[in-house]
Design a protein around this nucleic acid. Structure first.
Lengths: 164, 164
DNA sequence: GTAAGATGCTTCGAACTCGAAGCACGTATC
DNA sequence: GATACGTGCTTCGAGTTCGAAGCATCTTAC
């Protein structure tokens, strides 16, 4: 029981704590956003567009940023469009591509939701750690993320990779 | 754009890196487990039972450990029982309560899946960090987790909390 | 002991997710 | 400029999730 299939206490501690912190945080965020009438995926889409230069991105760019399937993104984008928060238009340079842009209503929605979101994250994640530790935590996680993003079996694998 | 609604770079870095690392890790784990015929929730249920003293827990105990709704747990427990990996029996001391226990087949299933799981976690999360940093990361996240678990608005809130 | 509320779990319907398959357009190769 | 393959996105069906409502049992207060 103490031996988790070959992980020592330090490894276990890091793994389980990460799992639990992210789950609890994600759950809390989800709850808050639902109260505001948004899915967390929808919120992330809006935020990505908000931060994007020119306020527009292709569907693929969005899907790569979020960790969500293409079809899932299509679904949520449909809802967002129906709600008038984003607009979809065929891309000028590539007719296959769809360019998504943030509408004025979408921007307003972000401004309405962000303060509560930030307050929540601050209360759960940021407040309990002193400034210095926060920097350390960010540094460590960034290192891990960079490693994951370059690791071989990536999520963005080619479609039907030939047998060999 | 640099000002994320009131979060400075250090805060943003920690928040976003955490978000991304946990998402990518969860996604990779999910993929691996699906290949083994298990949901990640199912796997967590099995692991909790595996680590529990006596190898059995009540449904509520399980739901508290995982971050999942009661109804969701009921659903997954039903599947696990149908697959013969767990057994449900009325609790001896409380007739409302259901005691869940791990079957021999369930234990075997864990032994079959764990090595791959550990290898995956090691490759994605543990390997890129030197031993020392791993300890630091675990320590920081544990601190945050403890804070979250004691923070006021808990997930296990009373059912219909009276107005005041 | 009995009424009122709390607690453990399940059922139900609606919403969200995914992967496979499909369609349309682009790109390469000859 | 055809044929074949790669890419961007959507549709579809199956599986999973949740919260609200419901049932049964336990606990508390009187």
């Amino acid at each position: 029981m103490t031996d988790e299939g070959g992980l020592d206490p330090a490894e276990l501690g890091a793994y389980f704590a990460l799992e639990e912190v992210s789950s609890l945080l994600a759950h809390a965020v989800e709850q808050h956003l639902r109260g505001e009438g948004l899915t967390s995926v929808q919120f992330k889409v809006l935020m990505q567009l908000f931060e994007a230069p020119g306020g527009q991105l292709r569907m693929t760019d969005l899907a790569d940023g979020l960790v969500v399937s293409r079809s899932g993104l299509t679904y949520q984008a449909g809802l967002l469009e129906k709600a008038g928060l984003i607009a979809r238009a065929p891309s000028p340079d590539d007719d296959r591509s769809t360019t998504v842009s943030l509408t004025a209503a979408g921007r307003e929605r972000i401004f309405a939701v962000l303060p509560g979101h930030v307050a929540l994250v601050r209360r759960l994640l940021l407040d309990p750690l002193p400034r210095e530790d926060l920097t350390v935590l960010g540094g460590l996680l960034t290192r891990v993320r960079d490693h994951m993003r370059t690791d071989p079996p990536r999520s963005a694998a080619p479609r039907n990779r030939p047998r060999k």
